[in-house]
Design a binder for these strands. Structure first.
Length: 441
DNA sequence: CTGGGGAAGGGGCCC
DNA sequence: GGGGCCCCTTCCCCA
């Protein structure tokens, strides 16, 4: 006969002991703040502590001290509260840090939930963006107060938030992997997020198979960055560089991202990081990349999630970054290089044409085009007429490509960039689009 | 097979 | 934090 309340009761008791510093035999120092805990609980919850404490098991008579500066006390509070309650207080503000810390501490359950949280938020974010972009209201973009706080609902038990799906009755049982299933985070579009994740991974596999193969080989991690980048990041502490050498890199989402692996050295009782370590560094939970700004990490995460929120309205190709889209648009569709590829003379849409040869597009003046033979080279009218031939007048007004053929090169560039319209669309559309445009790389 | 060029994409960093 | 620029690497295509 099993008494279901026993687990939660036991954990509650342990949590009470922790709060009252009863039988606590482990001190964790995070940026100067001391957290008291029980070794056996930490051992059971964290791969990092398991390794740390197992190597220190012979000295059980002495209290263990661990020191961290890789994450903030607030973040560790969230982690420790989870360890002792099974409840993870995730918010949009802390999820990156919590995931990074969980990666560090090798708490796979926490990582999984953080992943789901991020994925779901991205999905919600996309839908919200769609809504706002469809309004074509620039004010809505710039005025943050009008946008819903996508992460405002913390994932806390009994929060009453529509995004909170923790059942208070399920209380403290979630510390075991089996019981964890009770604590699935089910946001508005959890299922969509999972599908999105799977799709992103499939696409990423197809597109970047080579890179992933390289990434998945730890021995090659050191060659992942260019020499310049290595030099740039060399100011990082030993903490980072050592981790990059040790941590197995696996870009697959379904695998467990293993974070920093400390505690393997002789000094396992106390582990401090060098003081010169920048106070806040953001570690990618999927790879060993570390950035200084959260925004950079957010941008970097797109290369793992495969999120491409910026489609080119001219050709449908999607980009993960706005500047890449702008660059693509200027290069491909705006025909920045208004020179004849053969005679190098300046040409306009009147005096020359864009021709397509294989996958290459370039301009030839009418004279060179005649020399080469206009029949031998298909004139690529699509790029120039794509939008003009559209029946959508609004689209035509947005993408005034070649609208004024006498306009100077500089003018075209400047005005064109101003006309660049970014549209955010649902991923399901992308899949259909991908089928329609199989040549998109 | 090889080298050059174009394009994409990732990171650092400034505004 | 977002936008944008610069730099770099990688991949692909072509001569």
């Amino acid at each position: 006969m099993e008494i279901s309340s026993h687990q939660s009761h036991l954990l509650q008791q342990l949590n009470e002991q922790r709060r009252q510093d009863v039988f606590c035999d482990c001190s964790i120092l995070v940026e100067g703040k001391v957290f008291k805990a029980h070794r056996n609980v930490l051992f059971a919850s964290s791969g990092y502590f398991k390794m740390l404490l197992s190597q220190n098991s012979k000295e059980t008579s002495q209290p263990t001290t661990a020191t961290f500066q890789a994450f903030s006390p607030d973040t560790f509070t969230v982690i420790l509260d989870f360890v002792y309650s099974g409840r993870l207080s995730l918010t949009g503000q802390n999820v990156i840090e919590v995931m990074s810390a969980a990666s560090f501490l090798q708490m796979t359950d926490v990582i999984s939930v953080c992943k789901t949280f991020i994925k779901s938020s991205l999905d919600i974010s996309e839908k919200e963006k769609d809504r706002y972009f469809s309004l074509s209201d620039k004010d809505a973009h710039s005025n943050g107060t009008e946008r819903p706080s996508l992460y405002s609902s913390g994932w806390q038990e009994g929060s009453g938030s529509p995004h909170s799906h923790l059942n208070p009755e399920q209380g403290a049982g979630g510390i075991s992997g089996k019981a964890w299933s009770k604590y699935h985070y089910h946001p508005v579009s959890h299922r969509n997020a999972q599908q999105l994740l799977a799709k992103h991974e499939q696409r990423k596999d197809a597109i970047k198979k080579t890179k992933h193969l390289r990434l998945s080989q730890p021995s090659d991690v050191g060659h992942f960055k260019s020499s310049k980048r290595e030099a740039r990041t060399s100011d990082s502490s030993d903490h980072v560089s050592q981790s990059e050498e040790q941590a197995p890199v696996d870009a697959e989402m379904d695998s467990t991202p293993v974070g920093y692996q400390y505690g393997q050295g002789p000094d396992v009782t106390s582990r401090s990081f060098p003081d010169e370590l920048p106070r806040m560094r953001f570690k990618c939970p999927y790879c060993t990349h570390v950035v200084k700004r959260k925004a950079d990490l957010k941008r970097h995460l797109r290369c793992h999630t495969g999120e491409r929120p910026y489609p080119c309205q001219a050709c449908g190709k999607r980009f993960s970054r706005l500047d890449h889209l702008s660059s693509h648009f200027r290069t491909i569709h705006q025909a920045c290089k208004l020179i004849c590829r053969k005679c190098k003379r300046h040409v306009t849409d009147v005096t020359g044409h864009v021709v397509q040869e294989g996958t290459r597009r370039y301009r030839l003046c009418n004279e060179c085009l005649a020399e080469v033979g206009i029949d031998s080279l298909p004139v690529d009218l699509e790029a120039e007429q794509h939008l003009l031939s559209s029946s959508d007048a609004e689209k035509e007004s947005r993408w005034r490509l070649g609208e004024d053929e006498n306009r100077s090169y500089v003018e075209i560039v400047e005005d064109g960039s101003a006309d660049l319209v970014i549209q955010q669309v649902d991923d399901s559309e992308e899949e259909e689009e991908k089928e329609r445009k199989p040549n998109i790389r």
